[in-house]
Simulated scan of single mutants.
Amino acid sequence: MTKDKVLSYLGLATKAGKVQSGEFSTEKSVKTGKAALVIVASDASDNTKKKFKNMCTFYEVPFYIYGTKDALGNCIGKEFRASLALEDTGFCNAIKKQIDSERI
Rank of each mutant, 00 (worst) to 15 (best):
E87F: 00
E23K: 07
T14Y: 12
I104D: 14
E102A: 15
Y59F: 15
F80G: 14
E60M: 08
V19D: 10
A16G: 10
K3I: 11
A13L: 04
T32W: 06
L86N: 10
A94N: 14
A71R: 07
F24W: 06
K51L: 14
S29C: 00
F58S: 14
E79K: 03
K15W: 01
A35V: 02
T57W: 02
N47E: 05
N74R: 13
L37M: 10
I104S: 15
E27Y: 05
F52W: 07
N74S: 15
V6K: 03
K5W: 08
A35Q: 09
Q98C: 14
T2F: 12
E102C: 12
S42V: 06
P62M: 11
R81E: 15
N54F: 06
K69Q: 15
E79T: 04
A16Y: 01
T32Q: 09
S29Q: 03
D4R: 05
F63Q: 04
F80R: 12
D100W: 06
G73E: 11
I39P: 11
E60N: 15
C92E: 14
G11Y: 01
Q20S: 15
E102T: 12
L10W: 03
T89Y: 11
A44P: 07
F52Y: 15
T14R: 14
F91Q: 09
V40T: 07
L86S: 08
I39K: 02
A82Q: 05
G73P: 08
K69D: 07
K18N: 14
K51P: 00
